[in-house]
Design a protein around this nucleic acid. Sequence first.
RNA 1: GCCCCCAUCGUCUAGUGGCCUAGGACACCACCCUUUCAAGGUGGCGGCACGGGUUCGAAUCCCGUUGGGGGUGCCA
Length: 458
Amino acid sequence: MTDRPRCRFAPSPTGYLHVGSAHSALCNWLFARANGGEFLLRIEDTDAERNRPELTDNILDMLRWLGLEWDGEPLHQSNRFDEYRAAAERLIAGGTAYWCDCTSEQVQARNKERGGKPGYDGYCRDRGLERGPGRALRFRVPDEGVTGWDDVIRGKVSFENADIEDFVVVRSNGNPTFFLANVVDDEDTAISHVIRGEDHVNGTPKYLLLRGALGFGDPPVFAHLPFLVNAQRKKLSKRRDDVSMLNYKERGFLPEAMRNYLALLGWGPPDGVEVRPIEETVEMFRIEDVNPSPAFFDHKKLEFVNGEWIRRIDLDDFIARAREFVDGVDEQTALRALGPLAQERVKVLSELPDYFDWITEPADDTRSWDKAMKLPVAAAALDGIIDAYGDAPWERDELHARFMALAERLETSASKLQGPIRVSVTGRLVGLPLFEILEYLGRDESLARLRAGRARLA
RNA sequence: GCCCCCAUCGUCUAGUGGCCUAGGACACCACCCUUUCAAGGUGGCGGCACGGGUUCGAAUCCCGUUGGGGGUGCCA
C-alpha cells in the first residue's frame, strides 16, 4: 500500500446526484482528506444507451456545491474502451473467459426446466465458441473455493465460488461491463481504498476474481458503506423518495448543512458535537468507525441542522444567499433591513417568501383574518392603536410602549391585542416581530392599513 | 428459491467485557421567556429484538431464532 491512500467516487450519469451517492462521495472525500490521500472522480459511462452526458454536469456541479473538491481530472470510462478490450484479451488468452451466444430468454428457459434457479448455467463454458456477432464474453468462475476479503466496515465477508455465476465482462455489442471496467480502472489509477455502497458487497468477489485472473497484485482495501434508507427502511431510490441534491439546493438547504448532516449518518463524532464545520469532521473522521447498519435519512434532523447553519453564517452572507429566494425589489430591500429577524427564524431558505409577502400590501390569508378578528377585542384594539399611534414618534420602542399601554387600558393580553393589528398590517397571524414591521412600513402606510382593517371589520 | 449484509430510545448515534442506574442529538410533551412564530432555557417520555451459551461479570464475545434490507441484468 502506498503512503498516500487513493480513493474514488464513481457515479454513473444515469440520474441527478442523489443524497445516497453524495453520502458515498462525502465518505470518500473525508477519508482522503483525513489521511492525506487523494480523492478521484470517475464517470462510469460504459452503457451508452442509458447515459445522459448532461447529467455528468449536474453531478460535478453538486459535488462542487457541497465543497467536495476532487483531485485531478475526472476519468471517463467511455474514453478507455481500448484498455478494457486489452484486459479482455488477456482473460481470453489466460483461459479464464469464454464466448457465449445464449440469449437471456434461453438461459431463463433452461433455468425453468432445471427448477427455477436464476443465473447463468455455464452452458457455453466448453463449447469453444469463437468471437462473433451476438456473442458476449463471460468470465469463467472457479467451481470451488471461497472468495472473500476483510471489509474495513463489515469485517470478514466471503462467498463460495460455486454460488457465483459466470458473469459477462464484454457485452455482445463489444462494450465492457461495469465489472471489467471497474477493476481495470482501479488498477490503472492505483486505487488503494474502494469505499462504496453496500449494494456492491455481492459484486466484490467478482471484482476479486477478475483481479486475480488479470494478474493484478494485492487488491485494494474495501469499505462498504451502509445504505441511506427511507421510513420504510428501504434503500433510498429516486423513484419513490425525495433524493435529488439539486432539489435540496433549490429548496434552500445550505451546502454546509447538507454535508454536515450527511456526515452524521453511519458515523458520529467522538466528542458528541454534531453541528460543526466540516474541517473539524475531517480531523476526527475514521472510515473504520463507520457503522455497517443502514441509516434513515431524516428530513426533520436535516432541517434542524440547516437552521443551525443559517443562524451560524454572518448577516451579509445570509442576505446574499437569501436574496435568490425572495422575489421583488421591495421585498429584497426589506430583507436587507429585517434580515437578522428572519435569519433566526427559518430552517430552510424557501420559507423566506412567507416572511416578506406583506411589503406591498397585506397578504391574503382568510384563516388568519378570521382567527384574529373573531376576538371580541378586535375592534377596540384597532380603534385604540390607530388613536395611540396617530401622533407617535415612529420608532420601534415607542410603538411597543404605546401598544403595551393600550393592552393595559383594554385589560387584555399583549398576545391577543397584537393579533388584529398584525393581521391588518401583514395579513398573517404569524411573521416577523410586529413593531419592527410597523417601523419599517412607516407611519402613513401602517395607519392606512390599520384603518383599512378596521373598516373591513365593521 | 439461493447468496450476502444488518440489529442500542420513534430517528441518528456513544458504547469495543466491569466506569451502564446505557450517554448525547433530532423529534415529541410540559414549563419558563415572550407582541405572533421562531430562537433560547429547564424538565420529561423513551432503547440494548428474542433464546441459548462463554465468563466471577455481557449492550459489548460465540451459536441459533426472529425481524429487516440488499443482490441474484449483455444496469452501475
